[in-house]
Design a protein around this nucleic acid. Structure first.
Lengths: 188, 188, 188, 188
DNA sequence: GATGAATGAGGGTTCATTCAT
DNA sequence: AATGAATGAACCCTCATTCAT
C-alpha cells in the first residue's frame, strides 16, 4: 500500500467517523490532504470503495486484538481481551465511533463488512458461553440472549469510555466482569 | 395534527427506518402516499424537519412505556418496564430500527433528539442503581458503568428480538434479569 | 408530449446534428433554451435517453414518407418515394445529417434505432428488386448487392443535395432513376 | 517512424475503429500495448493528433490502391480499381470501418482529412464520367450527381462485404459494373 | 526514452426547495 | 390545500495532459 493510499484512508477514517458517510465529500477528504480531487480516484474506485476499505481496516484492527479465550485461565484471558479492545478504542476514537455509530443496517450497501464482524463476535461469545456451560462453569442459560447481552453491555460501556477524558479502562473491565461473576445484587 | 401530516410522518418513519435518512428522498415519501411533492412543504419546513419529528415521535412513544420503578416491588416493575419497551419494539420494528441504527453521533445535525432521550434513560437507570445501593439491595458498584452496561445489554437483546419471527420476549426479559440477579457463573 | 419536451428534443436534434453526441453537452441544450439544467432531467432520464429519442423521432419522420411501392405504376411511385424523402431531408437538414453522419456502428449504445431502420430499408428495396425480377421487369441480378447499391447511391446523392443552396431534387431523382433504367453507357 | 509510433498508430486504429473516438481513451491505447500513459505523449501531441494520423494513414493506404483510369481499357481498369479497394477493405476491416462510419461532418474537428479524401474521390469519378461523355462512351447525364451515386453505391456495397464472412468481391464488382453498363431493367 | 503519480477542468446527475396556478 | 414544473447548488467521477524522476 502506497503512502498516498494510507494518507487517504486515514483522512477518510477521521472524516467519516466525525461526519458520517454522506456529510463527508470526496472534496473534503482530498482537501484535508491538500491534494487534487483526481488523485483520490487513482487509489479508490469511488467513494463507496474508500468507505468500505476504512471499515475493513477497522475490523482488521479490532480482530487483531481479539484472542480466543483458552481454557487455562479463562477469566484472565477474557479480561485481557476486553482490556485490549477498549484500549484500542480509547486510543483511536475515530475507529471506535465508526464501530459504534456506523448506521449499521440502515444502508445495505455497506453492511457486509461490519455485519460479518459483529456476527463473528456474537458467535465467538456465544460459543464461549456454551463451552462454559458444558464445563460446568457457567450456569444454565440461553446462550444466544446472553451473548448479545454481553456484547451490548461491553459496547455501551465502550461508548462511555471514549467520551471521557481519561477513562478508567481497568475499572470498567472489572465492573463488567463483576456483573458476569455475581450479578448486581447484594449477597444475602 | 392533520391527517396528511400524520400520513407523512408515518410514511417517513417507515422509509427512514429502512433506508436511512440520505437514501430516502422527499420524493420517495410523497410518492409512497401518491401526493405531490409540493404538498410535503405545506406540513414540514424541510427534510431535516420531518426526520426530527419522526425521531421525536419515536422518543415519545418509548417514553410513554417507561415508568419509574417504585420501591414497592422494584423487580416486578423493572420487569414490566423491560417487557413493555421490548413489546413496543417488536410491534413496531420500524421504530426500533430507528432507535437502534440511527447514525447517532455521526451526524451532529440530528443528535439532539435521541441524545437527550438516551441521556435520560442512562440517568434513570443510574438513579435506580444508586437507590438500590442505598437501600442495600444492590451491591457496591460504579453506577455509571453499570447503568451503561444494563442499557447496552438491553438494547442488543432488543436488536436480536426484532430480527426474529416470533420472539420470546418474556424469556429474554427473564434472562436479562437473571444476569442482574446472579451473574453468569454456576453457584458453588 | 409536453411543450418543454418538444423544445428540448428540437434543440437537441439541432445540436447533436451539428456537433455530434459527445461535443454536445446537456448544458448546451438547456442553455440554448435558456432554462435550468435540472429541467432537462424532468423530461429525460439522461443524455443517452434524449439522443435515442431524437433518433427515434428522425426514423419516424422518415418512415412516414416511405410508402410501399404498389404494382400499378411502380416507377411513378418509386419516384414519389425518392422525392418525398429527399424533400424531407432538404427541408430538415439537421434530420438528414443525423441519418447520414451519425457514427453508426461505432457506438453500439445507440445503434439499435438507426440499425433497425436501415435494415428495414435494405429489406424493403431488396424485396422490391426480387419482386421486379419475378415479374420479369428487372433483369437477373444479386438482389442483396443491388439493394445496397441503390440505397448507397440514393444516400450519397442526398448528402450532396443538403449541401446545396437550392438543390434540384427532381433532377437528382430523375438521374437516379435513369441509371436504374438504362445504366450509364451511350446506347449503341 | 519509430517502432513505438507504429505500434501506437496500429493500436489506435483498431480501437478507434471499434469504439469510436470518444469511447477510446488514451489509457485504452497504451494499456493495449502494455506501456505507460506518459509514453504516448512522446509520440503524439495529443489524442486528436493520433486520430488525425490514423485517418491520414487510412487515406494514404486507400489512395495507393486508386489508379487513374487510362483510356486504353477503361472498364478493365475501373474493375481493377474497385476490386483493389474492396480487397483492401475486406483485408483490413478496421480501416474500412473508419472510412465508413467515422462521424464525418458531425465533428468538424476531424473533417479535414476525410473530407479532402472524399472530395478527391468524387472529383476523380466525376472527371471520369465527364471524360466518358466527351468520348461518347457515357450517355449524357449530370456528372456530379452520377459521381455521387457511383461512390455511394460502391461504399454501401463495401459496408455489406465487410460484414460477411467470406465476401464475393468479384461478384460484387461485376454487379456494380453491370448496373453502370445496362441499368437494372430487363432488356426488351 | 520511459514512467506513472498528480492534476483539474469539465460534464452528468440528483434532489431539496420554491412558487405560480 | 394541493400541485408539479422549474430551479440550481452540490457532488461524483472521468480523462486528457503534465512533469519530475
Amino acid at each position: 500500500m502506497r503512502k498516498r493510499e494510507r494518507e487517504l484512508l486515514l483522512a477518510a477514517k477521521t472524516l467519516f467517523s466525525r461526519r458520517g458517510f454522506y456529510d463527508t465529500t470526496v472534496s473534503d477528504i482530498v482537501e484535508s490532504l491538500g491534494i487534487a480531487r483526481g488523485t483520490f480516484y487513482q487509489y479508490f474506485k469511488n467513494k463507496d470503495d474508500i468507505y468500505r476499505r476504512v471499515l475493513e481496516q477497522v475490523v482488521e484492527e479490532l480482530s487483531s486484538r481479539l484472542k480466543l479465550v483458552s481454557p487455562d485461565d479463562p477469566f484472565a484471558q477474557l479480561r485481557e481481551n476486553l482490556k485490549g479492545v477498549l484500549e484500542l478504542m480509547v486510543e483511536d476514537r475515530d475507529l471506535a465511533r465508526l464501530v459504534f455509530y456506523h448506521p449499521y443496517k440502515l444502508n445495505p450497501r455497506f453492511d457486509a463488512v461490519l455485519e460479518e464482524f459483529f456476527l463473528k463476535v456474537y458467535a465467538l461469545v456465544e460459543h464461549a458461553v456454551k463451552t462454559g456451560m458444558e464445563m460446568g462453569v457457567v450456569r444454565r442459560c440461553n446462550p444466544e440472549i446472553v451473548a448479545r447481552a454481553i456484547v451490548g453491555a461491553f459496547m455501551e460501556v465502550g461508548k462511555l469510555l471514549i467520551e471521557q477524558e481519561s477513562p478508567d479502562i481497568e475499572g470498567a473491565v472489572d465492573e463488567l466482569l463483576a456483573i458476569g461473576r455475581a450479578g448486581l445484587l447484594e449477597e444475602r
